[in-house]
């Protein structure tokens, strides 16, 4: 069995973002990068099947991006993926989901993958498109927003999350692409032996052209702060003093609620 996991490197979301010179995305200079949260669940799901089947499946971790994304490929390998594919493009941040999907499906169409895992969305772009686009381009089945996954004898059973915490359980034969939602499993931490082993594993580097990158379907013309206009009062300063003021507000609100004044 061959399994592919798609992972993206994203900035820490707590950073303050500054538009780049073209005003189309963030400037990367002061940012620190890590693995997209959703993709950690994807890796864990893949590695668990490998373990379940006694280590026979081969798990490939693929990432598209500049040189720095090798860090997340190494992390994926430290978590148990067997090999890495780096589709190297220094300008990957300017590509749209269609272009990313064209490269992943271009690569995957040569690999005979039985299972492909992606995140449900990337936290920086949040488009929730790439996984489904890849599956459609490969003409394989796809189940999105997985919060439960099990595999047995050529079939997968997937719990899909719906609104309000409801779920739908579906079953599907392989080949299949699954997009992973937060909470699908508990992603493992890389161990020291895992990290050492990952250093010896192979990472294949390919160019966008080799993976069959297509032209974009969208154009970005603006990137700015979402005017998160404070709707109320912002308090800053010495904490002990703030605590007194906030406690007074809390007491007042609580007492008003107790008197039935708020509802």
């Amino acid at each position: 069995m061959n399994i592919l996991v798609c992972i993206k490197q994203v900035p820490d979301m707590e950073a303050s973002f500054v538009p780049n010179r073209g005003g189309t995305w963030f400037d990367e200079t002061a940012l620190s990068f890590r693995m997209n949260d959703y993709d950690e669940f994807a890796i864990e799901a893949a590695v668990r099947i490998k373990e379940q089947l006694g280590g026979t499946p081969e798990v490939t971790a693929l990432s598209i991006g500049p040189g720095r994304v090798v860090e997340v490929i190494r992390k994926a390998m430290a978590m148990g993926c067997d090999r890495g594919v780096h589709l190297r493009d220094e300008e990957a941040a300017s590509l749209d989901p269609w272009q990313i999907a064209s490269m992943i499906s271009g690569y995957a169409s040569t690999g005979g993958f039985d299972l492909i895992f992606t995140g449900m969305q990337s936290v920086d772009r949040g488009s929730a498109q790439v996984g489904v686009l890849v599956a459609e381009r490969l003409a394989i089945a796809c189940v999105t927003t997985a919060v439960g996954f099990s595999y047995m004898a050529g079939r997968a059973t997937v719990e899909r999350e719906l609104e309000g915490g409801a779920k739908v359980v579906v079953s599907c034969a392989l080949p299949l692409l699954v997009t992973c939602q937060l909470g699908l499993n508990t992603p493992r931490y890389p161990t020291l032996p895992g990290i050492l082993r990952a250093k010896k594993k192979e990472i294949v580097e390919l160019s966008p052209g080799q993976a069959g990158m297509e032209k974009p379907l969208t154009r970005v013309s603006g990137f700015s702060h979402h005017v998160s206009r404070p709707s109320g009062v912002v308090l800053e300063g010495r904490l002990d003093e703030l605590a007194g003021r906030v406690a007074a507000v809390l007491r007042e609100k609580r007492d008003a609620i107790r008197r039935g004044g708020v509802r």
Binding site: M13, F26, S127, Q129, V220, F223
Partner: peptide, 25 residues
């Protein structure tokens, strides 16, 4: 995806955990 408004001939979408917005056409 995730269109939250209109902007000229494009649409605005939220990104970076809702902190930023983009105009996409």
């Amino acid at each position: 995806s995730g269109v939250a408004g209109m902007d000229g001939d494009g649409f605005t979408t939220r990104c970076c955990n809702g902190k930023m917005r983009r105009t996409v056409t």
